[in-house]
Amino acid sequence: MKKILVLFAHPRYEQSRTNRTLIEGIKGMDGVTIHDLYERYPDFNIDIFIEKDLLKHNDVIVWHHPFYWYSCPPLLKQWIDIVLEFGWAYGPDGDALVGKQALNVLTAGGTREVYCSEGRNNYTIREFLRPFEQTARLCGMDYLPPFAVMGTHKLSREELTTHIDQYQELLRSLQGDSIDIPEGDSCQFLNDLSFLQNTQAK
C-alpha cells in the first residue's frame, strides 16, 4: 500500500468551512499523513530535515490548499522553495523524489465555468497549475490532474459531503494504485473520473 503525505496549507483554517470538512473527512485514514504547514511553521521557519524525511517516507505527495490569486498560499511556496533542494530533489544527484506521485487538491470560490478561455479568468485551472506540474516533473515525479472543489461560496451541505466521500475514495485508490488516468490534458480534474462519479451516485 502506498503512503500518502497531505501537505496542507491554509492561513485561516478555523474560518474555512470547506477545507475544515475536507481535512476532517480524511483525518485518521490509514497510511495518510496530514501535515498542517501553517500550524507547524507559523514563523515560516520550515525545518528542512524533517520535511525531507517526511517526503522520503511517502509515495504520494498531495499539495492541499485553497486557490489564492491563481496559486497556493505563500507558506506552501516557501516550502517548495526551500525543501525541494538543488542536489537533492533536482539537479546533480537530485533524485530523492523520482517515481513518486504529486497532485494538487484545491478549493476555489469560482466555478469551473469562470476558469476557461471564455470565462472571467481566461485560463483553466490546469493551466494555472503549470508551475506545480513542472516542479513535479523536474523532480522526476508523476504529476496527476488536480482534485478540485469549485464554487465553494455556494456549496450545499450535500455537495460538500459528496466531495468528502470522493476525496476519501481518491486517496484510497491512490494507495492501491488502481486508478487509470488518461495521459496529457484530456483529464482536467480527477473529480471527473468515472470511479469518483460512482461515489457521487451513492
Binding site: I48, D81, I82, E85, F86, G87, G91, P92
Partner: peptide, 16 residues
C-alpha cells in the same frame, strides 16, 4: 542555510 543560495548552486554546476 542553503535555501535560496545561488552561489553554492553555481559552484556545483561549474564543478560538474
Amino acid at each position: 542555510d542553503t535555501s535560496w543560495d545561488s552561489e553554492s548552486m553555481r559552484t556545483r554546476i561549474n564543478k560538474k
